[in-house]
Design a protein around this nucleic acid. Structure first.
Length: 291
DNA sequence: ACCGCACCCTGAGCGC
DNA sequence: TGCGCTCAGGGTGCGG
């Protein structure tokens, strides 16, 4: 699932393919809640617009198009943004994968899950946004238009300071894990990295937010910087459906200490990692290292 | 203000 | 072989 590092890796790899190019045509699937801006409006407004930049805010990618308009892209859980022509087994269903020889690679063709296809005026490749579960979002903001979604975002996880987590957590009864997942507190945080950060901080995910100490929130902030920077360096996690825009797999999943390691030994003390549902999200922790 | 929970969706993995 | 079930999860929105 794309969290901040996956979105940032996507941004860095897809920016060279998008920025500076002029849109010729935008193809979409039928209207659905995936489109916060209706497909026909997208097609109409984007035609002829030049992509001036591609920036990230939390888990949102923001393409600056034309004079001040912004195209918001959220990858949701299964969103994939990549240049057409990419070859990757990850884009195929398990059934389709099984029918191929192990080394065989197939160029991807837009399918019914490809909800947005950006075609450019030049000869270069299209940019495709594919999302099997449609938890992603596309929205076009006119020049100067405000976005509630963006306005609500807290400090980016790469910039978060312990003091901010500390202040946000005072007198709160929610589990600290839930607080760390709140995008209004830590923008870009997600289930994998929240679990990893709590492990590095020695705090159990279920502890009431109001009961974490100042020192622990400092460790959490450092933890976010550490795991996310490291994950960006290694190309993001490839657990589940994430795919880097060039079709490669990220490598960070090999460095996980707790996430999806239920029953496996803690890398520090050997105690089996436990899984517990907190705030409707699975959480993983070491019962010995995390208090 | 805060918190828990339902909901959106589809594919994998399971038992039968 | 294939059906039906459960599970996963980001973010929003609602009811208590």
């Amino acid at each position: 699932m794309p969290e901040l590092p996956e979105v940032e890796v996507t941004r860095r790899r897809i920016a060279p393919v998008m920025v500076g190019r002029t849109l010729r045509e935008v193809r979409t699937t039928a209207p659905s809640y995936f489109f916060l801006t209706q497909p026909d409006v997208l097609a109409r407004e984007l035609r002829g617009a030049k992509v001036e930049g591609l920036v990230r805010a939390g888990k949102y990618l923001i393409a600056e198009v034309g004079s001040g308009a912004r195209l918001l892209l959220h990858l949701g859980m299964t969103g994939q943004l990549f240049a057409a022509g990419v070859s990757s087994l990850r884009l195929l269903s398990a059934t389709a994968r099984a029918s191929l020889a192990p080394e065989e690679q197939v160029a991807f063709e837009p399918d019914p899950h490809t909800h947005l296809q950006l075609c450019f005026a030049d000869e270069g490749p299209d940019v495709l946004f594919r999302d099997v579960r449609k938890f992603g979002k596309v929205q076009l903001l006119a020049a100067g238009e405000r976005s509630e979604r963006l306005d609500k975002l807290g400090t980016d996880a790469l910039e978060i300071r312990g003091e901010q987590i500390f202040r946000a957590s005072r007198k709160r009864k929610v589990a600290i894990k839930s607080l760390l997942l709140d995008q209004a507190v830590v923008a870009g945080s997600g289930n994998i990295y929240a679990d990893e950060v709590l492990f590095l901080s020695g705090v159990r995910p279920g502890r009431a937010a109001g009961r974490v100490t100042r020192a622990e929130t400092e460790r959490m902030a450092c933890g976010f910087h550490r795991v996310m920077q490291r994950s960006i360096e290694t190309g993001g996690s490839s657990i589940s459906d994430y795919i880097a825009p060039d079709g490669s797999d990220g490598a960070y999943q090999d460095e996980r200490r707790v996430y999806a390691r239920t029953g496996e030994p803690c890398t520090v003390c050997g105690t089996p990692i436990r899984r517990k549902v907190i705030g409707q999200r699975s959480s993983h922790y070491c019962p010995r290292c995390q208090k």
